[in-house]
Structures are given as structure tokens and as C-alpha cells.
């Protein structure tokens, strides 16, 4: 295997240009991991240092520290380079504790479930 020349990496599709940068990794299950990219391969397996998961529920968010993470490439949807000059999140979003975000997540899940069952009960109305 050959390594791209230093100038080359910025023009190629390889993740080399993102090494040692702070990235957002979107996973197939919708999770959002952030951290410094330390290593990767052709499958988009990736090593994130100082990784944390950013949980967002409505206008609330929470960063849960994870440590050093190796992500299996098949779970990766997108790897985004963050613009350091831009705000990471809209101004109205509020950071809350891990306990609070878990509560909010649970409430959201129950609401979705309720919506689903209500819809099912109303199906005889032929809404669509």
C-alpha cells in the first residue's frame, strides 16, 4: 500500500486531510460522535480521541464523554469537518446534564409511541 504525498491528500477522497482535526461522525443509528481523528483505513474504520457523544433532543443537548473510540467503518454515514469560526449549534440550544437529556430522550420516545398508538386507533377514519 502506498501513501499519498502530503500535497495529494487534500485533493483525494482519503480521510488523511482530516487527521488530527476535530470532526463530527454521524453513525447509521443516528448517533453523533465528536472527537479528534487519529487514524483511519479504506473502510472508513476510524479512531477518535477524546470522543464524546452529542445527544440532541429538541433544543436541549448534552455531550457525554466516551474516551478513545474505534468506530467500525460500516456504521459510518458521514464524517464532517467542523468550521472553527462557526457556532457548533444554533444559539437557542441549551446544554443540560446527562440525567436531564436521558429524561428528555425518554419523554420524546414515549411521545412518539403514543402518537403511533393514537394513529393506529384512528386508522378507521382513513386519514390519508
Amino acid at each position: 500500500m502506498s501513501w499519498a504525498a502530503p500535497d495529494d491528500i487534500f485533493f483525494s477522497t482519503s480521510l488523511a486531510a482530516y487527521l488530527d482535526k476535530k470532526l463530527l461522525v454521524l453513525l447509521r443509528d443516528g448517533r453523533k460522535l465528536m472527537g479528534l481523528l487519529r487514524s483511519f483505513d479504506q473502510f472508513a474504520n476510524a479512531v477518535l480521541e477524546e470522543a464524546y457523544e452529542r445527544v440532541i433532543v429538541g433544543d436541549l443537548y448534552c455531550d457525554i464523554p466516551l474516551g478513545l473510540y474505534i468506530i467500525r467503518g460500516e456504521n459510518v454515514v458521514l464524517i464532517g469537518e467542523l468550521d472553527v469560526e462557526k457556532e457548533e449549534l444554533p444559539a437557542q440550544m441549551v446544554q443540560v446534564s446527562e440525567a436531564e437529556i436521558k429524561r428528555a430522550q425518554k419523554a420524546e420516545k414515549e411521545e412518539m409511541l403514543l402518537k403511533g398508538t393514537m394513529r393506529k386507533r384512528m386508522e378507521f377514519l382513513d386519514l390519508d
Binding site: 464532517g80 469537518e81 449549534l89
Partner: peptide, 16 residues
């Protein structure tokens, strides 16, 4: 997708 606000450049895996 508020978390995408500050993403300027990105890599998208072909399989998705």
C-alpha cells in the same frame, strides 16, 4: 439537523 450547522466540508461513505 442542528448538529450539521458548522460542518463545512464532509466525507460521505459511498454505501449510505
Amino acid at each position: 439537523y442542528p448538529h450539521m450547522l458548522s460542518v463545512r466540508n464532509c466525507f460521505i461513505r459511498g454505501s449510505v
